[in-house]
Simulated scan of single mutants.
Amino acid sequence: MDGLDLLKQHWHKDNNFPQVDKEALRGMLHKSSSSIVKWIFLISILELALGIILSFSFGIDKEQHSLFYDVVYTVFDLVFYTVICYFIYSFFNSYRQIKSTNNTKVLLGTILKTRQHVDRYIRFNLYCIIFSFVFISIDEVIIQYQERTTGEFISFLLFMVILSSLFCWVFLLIVKLYYRVLYRRLVKKLTKNYEELLEIDRQEQG
């Protein structure tokens, strides 16, 4: 058990906990929240870098696809990376605000915004994964429609729908597990810090 947990435990057991120790707890909660948001920011940067590396390493052969596919793919990439950069900036901005403020209300508000940004970041990534699977599957169906007979195409279509749905479902489960283990764990700690800070603020006002 670290110093922050010891202070929390002692503070909850003793209602007459000295004001100086309340301030020490507030400071440690402040520092802990700053560290958590910094990790969220750094992890999101690593994910972006990994995504760019994989995109270049496993580039799609555009000669096999139509102009429409290339346009949609380019627009999707532009929107995806723009939104991801926005989230990364939001995480950095939250880290900067938490690190620089001494105001409890500002700190509490920033923690709430960070939690909301993390939730939106996760949902956006999941939606993009679903869109990617659907878009790639549709493009493959169009290609096969041009190359196969009607009977072969119907068999391929059924196989494609089942395989794509199954693969997408498994992949989403893995991604959700990753987010739950990593981001949700950090957000859970951030939420606990928020509740502790709120309780300190209520006691001081009461």
Rank of each mutant, 00 (worst) to 15 (best):
2 D>A: 12
2 D>E: 07
7 L>G: 02
7 L>I: 00
9 Q>Y: 14
9 Q>H: 14
9 Q>L: 13
11 W>F: 05
15 N>W: 09
16 N>C: 08
16 N>R: 09
19 Q>Y: 13
20 V>M: 14
21 D>V: 10
25 L>A: 03
26 R>C: 14
27 G>C: 02
28 M>V: 09
29 L>E: 03
30 H>V: 00
31 K>Y: 08
33 S>L: 01
33 S>T: 02
34 S>T: 04
34 S>V: 00
37 V>Y: 00
38 K>Q: 14
38 K>T: 11
40 I>V: 06
41 F>G: 05
42 L>R: 08
42 L>C: 06
43 I>F: 05
43 I>H: 04
45 I>M: 04
46 L>D: 12
48 L>E: 12
48 L>P: 06
50 L>C: 15
51 G>R: 07
53 I>A: 14
54 L>N: 13
56 F>V: 02
57 S>C: 06
58 F>A: 05
58 F>E: 08
59 G>S: 09
60 I>S: 01
62 K>T: 12
62 K>H: 10
63 E>D: 12
64 Q>C: 10
66 S>Q: 01
66 S>P: 00
66 S>V: 02
70 D>Y: 07
71 V>H: 05
76 F>Q: 09
76 F>V: 09
77 D>W: 13
77 D>V: 11
77 D>K: 07
79 V>M: 06
81 Y>Q: 06
83 V>K: 09
87 F>I: 00
87 F>Y: 04
89 Y>S: 05
90 S>Y: 03
93 N>I: 03
93 N>H: 09
94 S>I: 00
95 Y>A: 02
95 Y>M: 01
95 Y>W: 03
96 R>G: 02
96 R>D: 04
97 Q>S: 10
97 Q>R: 13
97 Q>W: 02
98 I>N: 00
98 I>A: 03
99 K>L: 07
99 K>F: 08
100 S>T: 11
101 T>H: 02
101 T>F: 00
103 N>S: 08
105 K>I: 11
105 K>Q: 14
105 K>L: 15
108 L>A: 01
108 L>T: 01
109 G>A: 04
109 G>H: 03
110 T>I: 02
113 K>Q: 14
113 K>A: 12
114 T>Y: 02
116 Q>C: 07
116 Q>S: 11
117 H>K: 06
119 D>P: 04
120 R>H: 07
121 Y>W: 05
125 N>R: 08
128 C>Q: 14
129 I>C: 10
129 I>T: 13
132 S>A: 15
132 S>H: 10
134 V>R: 06
138 I>P: 03
138 I>Q: 03
139 D>H: 09
140 E>P: 06
143 I>N: 03
145 Y>Q: 10
146 Q>G: 11
146 Q>K: 11
148 R>T: 11
149 T>W: 04
150 T>D: 15
151 G>R: 08
152 E>P: 06
155 S>W: 12
157 L>S: 05
158 L>K: 08
161 V>H: 04
167 F>T: 15
168 C>E: 07
170 V>I: 15
172 L>Y: 00
174 I>N: 04
175 V>W: 01
179 Y>C: 01
180 R>K: 11
181 V>I: 14
183 Y>K: 05
183 Y>C: 01
183 Y>R: 03
187 V>L: 01
189 K>F: 09
189 K>Q: 11
192 K>Q: 13
194 Y>C: 05
194 Y>I: 01
195 E>D: 12
196 E>P: 04
198 L>T: 15
199 E>Q: 15
201 D>F: 06
201 D>M: 13
202 R>A: 15
203 Q>P: 09
204 E>P: 01
206 G>Y: 04
